[in-house]
Amino acid sequence: MSERLDVKKTYKLVVNGAFPRSESGRSYEVMTADGKFLANVAQASRKDLREAVVAARSAQVKWWNATAYNRGQVMYRWAEMAEGRRAELVEHVQLAEGVKKSEAQRSVARAIDRIVWYAGWTDKATQVLGGANPVAGPFFNFSLPIPSGVIGVIAPQESSLEGFVEAVAAPICVGNAVVALASERRPTPAVVLAEMTATADFPGGVLNVLTGCTSELAPHLATHEDVDGLDVSGGAELGDELALLAAGSIKRVYRPRVNDVGNSLRRLRTFVETSTVWHTIGQ
């Protein structure tokens, strides 16, 4: 009997709930941390980015129209899916980041817990970020957080899974849709995790993940007028340029700080707008 052939995986983009190759037909080689060939990964073009933004824009409406409770369930289900494929994620993190298996296991566990944490925030962010305002009249006056819309995320380059989860789960949990550029050299854990959104009942397009050259794609994401917010965590090498480009279309910009603390709501706060409503007191 002949030896079984390997079934190699080519990592595709995640756009609109589907897994297309790049429109450009390009792909690039991704190496493990110790320099061995790991996989061929689709190299997205700016046209893929444009398609992803269109998908995110229409998905955001459906996502925000779902109840907060339902969004929490869907995000929790994403964590369930990830839990079921933990071993695979651990292997990817280990290869991509070159860490020991035990460290990779801890990292994946933290990433999954983080999804659960944000799943919990879906129906609590309103209470914490919003509130009732005192007014001199027979009215209720509420300030409520509503999602900014479509958020561009340049995921951290080093932390391939945890950093990615932190950057995408926060905007998603408050009702945004996301177009994320995965870590350029370490994209596979993010792609595997994003694939799981397809079986977690997200409307297609809530999380779109592009792989490819960050310096090529990030400026287009920053200048795209139909993107409402930008997380520049993984764009350090592009410096302040991205924030400047984003200013052209008045985006909310999240920039990492040196002493960022864990369990921070800063990302949630960044990617919401405040809507204030008046309502008469009854009787």
């Binding site: 444009r50 824009r57 287009h220 200048t223 795209h224 007028e225 139909d226 052209g248 279309s249």
Partner: peptide, 9 residues
């Protein structure tokens, strides 16, 4: 302009 445009422009 080089920048992608918002549809509701």
């Amino acid at each position: 302009t080089g920048a992608y445009v918002r549809p509701d422009e």
